[in-house]
Simulated scan of single mutants.
Amino acid sequence: MSYTQGVPRSGAEARRRLQQAALELYQERGFDQTTTAEIAARAGVNERTFFRHFPDKREVLFDGEADLRAALMHEVAEAPEGLAPLDVLLHAFRIAGRILEENRPFSEPRLAIIAVTPALRERDLAKAASLTEAVAEALRRRGVHDRLADLAAQTGWAAFHHAAQAWIDDPSQNLAAHLSQAFNDLRDLTSNPIPGQAHAEV
Rank of each mutant, 00 (worst) to 15 (best):
L86K: 09
L68K: 07
R98L: 06
F54I: 02
P80T: 05
V76P: 01
E65D: 15
I95N: 10
L61K: 06
E78G: 01
G64L: 05
V76I: 13
A37T: 12
T49P: 11
R58T: 08
A70K: 14
H91F: 15
L72G: 02
R58S: 14
K57D: 01
M73L: 13
G97L: 02
F93L: 09
H91W: 14
R52Q: 08
E65Y: 12
K57N: 05
T49C: 14
R52W: 12
A40T: 01
E81Y: 08
V45T: 04
L90K: 01
A96T: 04
V88L: 03
G64F: 04
H53R: 00
H91G: 06
A71N: 13
F50R: 01
L83C: 07
G44I: 06
A84T: 12
V45D: 03
A70G: 10
V88R: 00
H74F: 15
A43C: 04
L90P: 03
P55I: 06
M73D: 09
F62W: 09
A92G: 15
A71V: 12
N46Q: 14
R48P: 13
A37K: 14
N46P: 08
G44V: 04
D56C: 09
D67A: 15
A84Q: 15
L68Y: 10
L72P: 04
L68A: 14
E75V: 04
F93A: 05
D87P: 14
R98W: 03
R48Y: 15
H53A: 00
L90V: 03
H53D: 01
R69S: 15
H53G: 00
V88D: 01
P80W: 08
G44D: 07
D56H: 12
L83P: 10
M73F: 10
F93K: 00
V76S: 01
K57I: 00
A37H: 07
D87T: 07
A84W: 11
H91Y: 13
R69H: 09
V60N: 00
L61W: 11
R94D: 07
H74G: 08
H74A: 13
A40Q: 01
R58F: 05
A70E: 13
